[in-house]
Design a binder for these strands. Sequence first.
DNA 1: GTTGGCACTCTCTTCTATCGAGTGCTAATA
DNA 2: TATTAGCACTCGATAGAAGAGAGTGCCAAC
Lengths: 364, 364
Amino acid sequence: MSTISERKKKILAAVVDEYIRTAEPVGSKAIAQSAHLGCSPATIRNELAELVNMGYLEQPHTSAGRVPTPMGYRMYVNELMDRQKLSLEETEDINRRLNQKLQELDDTIDNVSRLASQLTDYPALALTTQSTVTIKRFDIIYVDANTFILVVMLSNNSVRNKLVRLPISVDQNMIRRLSSLFNASFTGITEDQITPLLINSTERAADDSMGLSSVIAAFAIEVLTESSTPSASVSGENRLLGQPEFRDPDKAHRLMSYLSGGGHILPEADSFGGTDEVRVLIGPENVAEELKDSSVVIASYDAGDNTRGLIGVVGPTRMDYSAVAAKLSFLAAGLSRRLGGGEAPPEGMHNKLIIKGDSSDGSR
Amino acid sequence: MSTISERKKKILAAVVDEYIRTAEPVGSKAIAQSAHLGCSPATIRNELAELVNMGYLEQPHTSAGRVPTPMGYRMYVNELMDRQKLSLEETEDINRRLNQKLQELDDTIDNVSRLASQLTDYPALALTTQSTVTIKRFDIIYVDANTFILVVMLSNNSVRNKLVRLPISVDQNMIRRLSSLFNASFTGITEDQITPLLINSTERAADDSMGLSSVIAAFAIEVLTESSTPSASVSGENRLLGQPEFRDPDKAHRLMSYLSGGGHILPEADSFGGTDEVRVLIGPENVAEELKDSSVVIASYDAGDNTRGLIGVVGPTRMDYSAVAAKLSFLAAGLSRRLGGGEAPPEGMHNKLIIKGDSSDGSR
DNA sequence: GTTGGCACTCTCTTCTATCGAGTGCTAATA
DNA sequence: TATTAGCACTCGATAGAAGAGAGTGCCAAC
C-alpha cells in the first residue's frame, strides 16, 4: 500500500501543476487533457479517488475538483516536480543584480531579502545565523582635541566605526597609546572576554584618568554584540496580496504582521544543514503557528567567516516550488561565491539542486 | 456665503470626529447626542443639508448619514479639530524610544520610519532631502601589504569606511603618502569637483603607478553620492490592512506597492518650509495619483548639517489627524534636538504645533 | 428658527431558485 | 481485469425577490 503507481504519480503531478497555475480545484477532465496519458476522465476519476484515500489529495466539497494536501505537495516536491533549470536570461539577470547590489554594500541583508523577493515575487526574508565574531584590528584616528574616530575591523572582514566627541580635551599621544593598547589586548577575543578587569588594566596601562578606555571598550562590546547577533530583514510583504489565497484581508494582515515582526521567524534556522541545500517546508510542517497554512522555501549561503546566511521565501502552499527553489538555489550559490571564504564554483554555472524536506517522505 | 456659522462648525467637527472613530456615515441623531447643542435631530438635518450644499459633507446615497469631503477634512484640520497635546506617558514613551534607537544608529532613517509607524499605527515613511556633503577628513589605515581601510569623515559628521583588498602589494609609505595627499586635496569639495584631472594630479604627486588613487577617489565619489542622495525608508505598510477602507485587497495592494517603491513619493518634499511645521495633505491634494484618496501627514526635522529629514504618515482620508499630527510633531522636534545643530528646546517640552495645509483654506 | 411626524429611498441581509461543474456509481466493453 | 460511457446526484456559486432598518427630506405646527 505504500507504493504508488507510475500513473498515479503522473496524475498527482498534473493536479499539483495545474493547481499551482490556476488556484482552482482541478477536475478529471482537465487532467485528461493536460497530462496526455491515453485514458478517459472516468479512469482518472478512479485514480483520483484512490489518491484522495491515500491522503495526497482532498476535495473542498463533494462535487469539486481535487486540491493537493500538504502530503501531496510533499510528494510533489520530493519526487515529482521537474527540477527547473533557469534560463540563461534568468541567470544573467540574477548575476547582474548581484554584482550591482553587492559591490559596495557587502553584507547588507536588506539587499538580499529585497533581491529574493523581487526574483520570486513572493515575500522574502533574509537572516544570518549566530556566529562568533572577534576584533581583528583596532584603530583610533585623532581628529581634534575633542574628537576621535574609532575604527574596528572584525574577523568577518567588515569594518565598523564611530565618531566620539568628548567634553574634555585629549592629546594625540594619549590616543596613540590607547590605540596600540587596544590593538594589543582587545583583538582576537570574543565579546564576553571583555571584562571590567581587562578594561581596568587597559585604563591603568594607558594612564587614562578620563575614562576613555571604557568608552572605547563599550564600542567594542557594542560592535561585537551587533555583529554576532542574528539579524533579519523582510521584504515584499505586499506581494502576498497578489495571491488569491490572501484575498481575505485579515488572513493577509496576520501573516504580514508576523513577517514584519522579523527575526523570531524560522525556528528551523538553527537546524540547517549545509550550503547548496534548499529546504521546503510545507504548511503544517512549519513550526510557527502563523505559517501553518503557508509554505516556506529556504536556501542557505556561506556569508564568510563561518557565518551562514539564510534566504527564505514565504507563500501559499500552492507555491511555485520548482521555480522558487531554482532561483533561491542559484541566488544562494552566487552569494556564497561572493561572500564566502571557500573555493567557489565558476560563475554562471548551474549548481546542483539538492532539495531536502522534513523527515516524512510523503509515503505511507 | 463664505462664512460658516458657529453651530455649523460644531456640527461639522462632530461629524468628522464621529466618522474618524467609526468609519460609518454619521446620522443626525448621533450628532444630536454627541455634540450637545440643545437642538433636535431635525434641526441638525437642516444644517447638514446646508453643509452638503456648501461642499463640506456628502452622502454616499440618499438615505445614508453624512461623510466628510476632502474640503470638509481640510476645514476640520485647519480650524476645527482640537490640537491634541500628548499625555505625559506618551511623550515619555517617545523620548525613551528615541534615546534607545538613536544612541548608536545616528541617522538611520529606517529607525525613524519604523518609530513613526509604531507610534501612529499607520504606514510611515522617512526621507532625507538633498544636501551638499563634503569630506572633512580622509584617513587610510594600513592593514597589511594587500589590504587597507579607507575612512572618510563627512561634513555631516558621519563616518564611512571601506575595506580595500589588492591583488598587489603596497608599502606603508605609499599609504601614508596617499593619505596625506587625499586629506589635503579631497577635503572640502563636493562630488562634482572630483575630476579626472584632480585624480590624475594626485596620482602623479603620490608617485602612484598602480592606480590606487582612482580606487580611493572612486570611494570618495561613492560616499559623497550616497550621502547626498535623498534616501527613503518605508515601514509598517501592513498596518494599512487594519483600516476598513483597505479591506479591498486590490486597493490595499496598489497603495502598498506604491509605498514599497519608496522614494519618488511625496513630490511635495522639496517645497517644504521649515522645521516645527506639520503639513497635512488630504486626498486629492496629493500629487501622486496613488494617494488621491488617502491622506498624508508630514513633519520635518533638522537632521544636522543643513539636511532636512521628513517623516510622513499615510492613511485613509478618515485619519486621526489630530493624534498623528501631535505625535509626528513631537517626534520631529525630538529628532531635531538630537540630530540638529541649532540650540534646542528643553527635553520633554511640548513644542507648539503649527499645521499648514495647501493654499486653499476650505472656504468658498 | 425649531421641532415632531411621516412617507420615501436605498442599502444590507436573508431566502429561494437555478445553473453547472464535477463527482460516484453502474453497466457495458475491450 | 482494467477501462469507458452514461447518468443521477451533490453542492457551491450566482441572481433575483422580499423584508428590515437606518436615515433622510419635507411639511405643518409651534
